[in-house]
Design a protein around this nucleic acid. Structure first.
Lengths: 196, 196, 196, 196
DNA sequence: CATGAATGAGGTTTCATTCAT
DNA sequence: CATGAATGAAACCTCATTCAT
C-alpha cells in the first residue's frame, strides 16, 4: 500500500499542518509557499505534488477547521443530558479546542481578510457560525420548554452566546495576555444567567 | 499661502475613506493602491502626494477607527446615569456605530491578518479592546457596589460582554444576513441578566 | 527692459547654478528637478519656464563648463611668453579653476555615467579634452623648436600632460582629503621635467 | 548536494559580467535590471536568485574591479627589480588591464555619479587610488635613495603619476579614438623623466 | 517522486512633465 | 509670470507556479 514510506494523504496532511502554522504565524497574505515548504521540511516544488495551488491549501485548511467545529456541534446535538448542561459543555469545548491549538483560529481571522473574500471562504465561515447558532437555539428552546430558561429565548440569544464565545476568543487571539482559560467559567455563567 | 483649490487635509481624508472602502471590500492584502486611487477618482501616483506609503494609509485608517472607539468609551466614563444604563448605552453605541459604517470594522478584521501583524497594529487593537474591558469592568464594579449587579463581577465579566458585542458584530460582518439591529436588545438583556 | 525685477536670462542663470550645485552634490541621476527648484528658491513648475527639459539643463550646464575651458585654452594660445611658461600657467589655471568651484567638475564625472552617454554629451567632453591636447601639443612643439623641450615631443606627451592634470583632479574629487593645491607645483615640475 | 545543473557561483559570475557590460554601456543609473537579465540571457526575476538587489550587483562589480587593482599593486610591491622598472611595469600593467577590458573602468566612472555617492562606493575608489599612490611613493623613495630619482620625490609626485595614468585612461574612455596603446611609452617616459 | 532554478505577471513607489488657477 | 497638484510611464522587487533533471 505504501510504496515508499509516507503515503500521499499523510504527506498532504503534514503540508497542511505546516501551512496552518505558517499562515497563523505570518498571516495568510504574507505566508509564502516557500515558507510552508520549509516548515514541512520539503522543497518548494514538492508542495505542488499535493496541492494544485496556494488557494487549495487554504480551502483544505478551512475544511479541517470546519470538521472540528462539526464534531463539537454534533456532541451538543446528542441528547442525554439537560440542554443547558450541553450548552455549557459546548462553550467549554469550543474554548478548549481553540486554546489547545490556536493556529486555525488565527488563520480564520485572516480568511475574511486576504484575497479569500471573493473566493467563497467567508460563506463557509458564515455556515459554521450559523450551525452554532442553530444548535444553541435548539438547546435554548428545549431549556425554555423545560423551564430552565425563560420563555421566548431563541435565535437572538443564540447569536449573542455565539458572539460571547467567539468574541472572547477574538480578544485572546489579538491579545494573548488575556487569561482565556479563566474566562470559560464566566462565559458560561453570564450566558446561562442571561437566558434565565 | 493661498490654498490653491483643494484643501490638502480634505483630500487626504477623501483618499483615506476611499482606502477604507477598498480595503474593506477586497481585504487589506488584496487592495491595491491603484484601486484606492480609482475609488478616490485620482491617479495612482497622486495617492503618494498625501501618503508616504501604503502602510501609512493603513496606520491612518486605524487611527480614525480608534478615535471613534475612544469617543464611545469616553461617553461611558461620563457619570450622571446609573452604571448599567451606561453599559447598555455603550453596547448600543458600539453596535450602532459599526452598523452605520461597517467598512472600518471589516478592515479591522484584516489588521491582524495581512502583513500588519508584525508592524504593531494588533497591539493597537489589543489596546482598544483593553480600554473597552477597563471601562466596562469599572461600570460593573460600580453596579455591584450599588447592588444592581451581583458582588464580585469584574474583569472577567467585562471580557465576556466585550466578547458578546464584538462577536455579534463579527458574525454580522461575515454574514450580513444576520439581523444585527435586532440583536442589540438581546445583547443588552443577556449581558445585563448575566451579571445580576 | 526688466518688467518685474529679474529678467529671463538672469533667472535662467540662477536655475542653472542651482542645478549644477544639486547635480554635483547628489549626482546627476539622483538630482531631481524638485531639488533644483528648491535650491533655486522657486517652484518646481517654474523651472520649465526657463528650460524645456531636465536634459536641457544638463546641456546648458555643460556649455557653461566648456566656456570656462575655452577661456583657459584661449589664454594659452595667446603668445607673448615662452611656451613652457604658458603651459605651466595653463596647468595652474585649470587646477585653480576647478579648485575654486569643484561642482562643475563633479558634475562632469557624472556626464559619462547617467543617461547622458547616448545623448552626445561625452562627445563634447571629448572635444574639450582634444582642444587641451591640441594647444598643449602646439606649446610643446614650439618649445622643442626653441630647444626648451626635447625634439619630437608632441601629441602623445600632450595627452600625458592633460592626463596628469585631469587625473589629479579626479583623485581630488573622489577623495577631497588629497591636498590638491599642493599638487600644482609637482604637476608642473613632473610634466615639464618629463618633456625636457 | 547534487549541483542540479548550474553552478550557483558560476551563474552569479555570468550575471555579474553581464551587469558590468550593461552598466558600462548605458551607465549605471540607466542600466536596468531587465537589461542585465537580457544580457545574461535569463529572465528579470532570475537575477534576484543570485543577487539581493541592484545595489548588491554594483558592490560585487566593484569588488571584482578592486581585486584586479590589488593584484597589480601587489606585483609592484614585490622586490627583485630596480624600483623605477617596477614603476614602469605598474604603469604598463594598469594601462594594459584597462585596455584589455575597458568595461569595468567605464563603470568606475559612474560610481561617483549615480546614486552610489552616498552608499560609500567612492570611499572604496578613494582607497584604491590611495593604495596606488602609496606603492608608487615607496618606489620613488627607493629610487631616490638609490640615486635613480632626484631627492625629495614622494607623495606629491606619486599623485601626479597616478593622475597621468588615470587621466590618460579617462581621455581614452571618453574618446576611444585616442590611441591609448601608443600612450603607454610616453606616460612612462614623461613620468620617469619628471622625477629624475 | 522530489527538487529548486527559472519564469514573468503584478505590486509598490518615484519623478519628469503638464496645466488649471 | 508663478505655482504646485495631478499625472502616468517606468523601475525595482516578490513570489506563485512550472518543468527539466
Amino acid at each position: 500500500m505504501s510504496p515508499k514510506r509516507v503515503d500521499k494523504s499523510a504527506r498532504r496532511q503534514e503540508i497542511l499542518e505546516a501551512a496552518v502554522r505558517v499562515f497563523a504565524r505570518r498571516g495568510f497574505a504574507a505566508g509564502r509557499i516557500e515558507d510552508v515548504a520549509a516548515e514541512a521540511g520539503i522543497a518548494k516544488g514538492s508542495v505542488y505534488l499535493y496541492f494544485d495551488s496556494r488557494e487549495e491549501i487554504l480551502q483544505a485548511a478551512f475544511e479541517a477547521l470546519a470538521a472540528g467545529s462539526r464534531e463539537i456541534v454534533g456532541r451538543a446535538r446528542t441528547p442525554g443530558t439537560p440542554p443547558l448542561d450541553r450548552l455549557a459543555a459546548l462553550i467549554r469545548d469550543v474554548i478548549a479546542s481553540v486554546t489547545v491549538s490556536p493556529e486555525p483560529a488565527r488563520l480564520l481571522l485572516d480568511l475574511y481578510g486576504s484575497g479569500a473574500r471573493e473566493e467563497g471562504l467567508p460563506l463557509h465561515m458564515a455556515e459554521i457560525y450559523r450551525e452554532y447558532r442553530t444548535v444553541i437555539a435548539a438547546l435554548l428552546a428545549e431549556a425554555a420548554a423545560e423551564g430552565s430558561a425563560r420563555p421566548g429565548v431563541g435565535a437572538a440569544e443564540a447569536a449573542v452566546i455565539v458572539g460571547a464565545i467567539e468574541g472572547c476568543l477574538l480578544q485572546w487571539i489579538i491579545d494573548p495576555a488575556l487569561p482565556i482559560t479563566e474566562l470559560t467559567g464566566p462565559i458560561v455563567t453570564v450566558c446561562l444567567g442571561g437566558v434565565r
